[in-house]
Simulated scan of single mutants.
Amino acid sequence: MEKNLLEQLTLWHDNDEFEKIVGKIAEIPEQERDYDVVSHLARALNNLDRYEEALQQLWTIKTEGEHDPLWHFRVGYAYYSLSQYEDAVNAFEMANKLDPEDEDAEMLLKWSRHEIDIITNPQENSMAVQPNAIASVKNDTLANELNNFKERIKPFQFIEHDSGNVSMILNVGVYKDEVFQTRADEGFEGNGYDWESLAVVFLVEKMPHLEDSVHFDPEADMFCAYSDHREALQKFAIGFKDACEDDAVIRDLFSRAELD
């Protein structure tokens, strides 16, 4: 791949301009596309929720991708998104084997196994105490994973409700307050409604595929996002927290927030 093309594809990816990636690569004859080009194409298709097309592209470079953990991760991500969890487990297991430090691959591997467990053993996944020792170990593993997730998104809190819905909340006024102060002259105070305005920009620009699943219900002193899709809110929570921790990214997103 030409260096300039690689840099352009990477820039488009960083800016979530996935359609541009697909369009540019479509201009390149298939016989002239190397491993890196097809990898970029498959990643962009995954980000556009075109998972079957992503898999088709990934299979064309299967031999070259055999020892690439990112190839296996992208295959697993496509299968997971298509709810083909057994295939996802196989792919994430290989990605994890090739790169044990990849936390995302490890997390999605656990989520895939959990989905299989729910499908095959629905009664074992109830909140009741189970006498089976193996089932208890499974529950402990899932509990540890949830705890790790909750630690990762602090100071946001992840709340599970009896109804099955989940919420992500933040008591506002301290965390990232300096970001909101940059537009105090426009009326921004850093309250829950201002956080919603910021979160909406993030959701629309960075995770548009979750717009129908993640909703907001702020109050003056609290930001709240909620969903009846646990996985969707977890993905949003991780992405939004990571964005908040990148000062340049969060200030750029906030520059387009609209005062409620």
Rank of each mutant, 00 (worst) to 15 (best):
A243F: 02
I118E: 14
Y51S: 05
P69V: 00
L6H: 10
L58F: 07
A248D: 14
D49F: 00
L146S: 12
A133D: 10
K235I: 12
N171G: 04
L210W: 03
D177C: 04
K150S: 10
F188P: 06
L233W: 08
M1D: 09
T63A: 13
Q123K: 15
A128Q: 13
D16R: 15
T120Y: 11
E17T: 06
E53W: 00
K176V: 04
A91F: 00
K206M: 11
F92E: 00
S126T: 15
L233R: 10
K20D: 10
R74W: 15
Q57M: 06
E52T: 04
E196C: 03
R152K: 15
R33A: 02
S39A: 05
I116V: 04
D252P: 05
Y35P: 00
E196H: 03
G239S: 08
E52L: 03
F236Q: 05
T63E: 15
E93G: 03
R50F: 08
V201F: 07
I238M: 05
D99E: 14
L253Q: 06
F18Y: 15
D68W: 07
R113E: 13
F216L: 05
D260H: 08
E106V: 13
N4G: 06
D228R: 09
T60F: 02
M127K: 13
S213Y: 09
D49N: 06
R183Y: 03
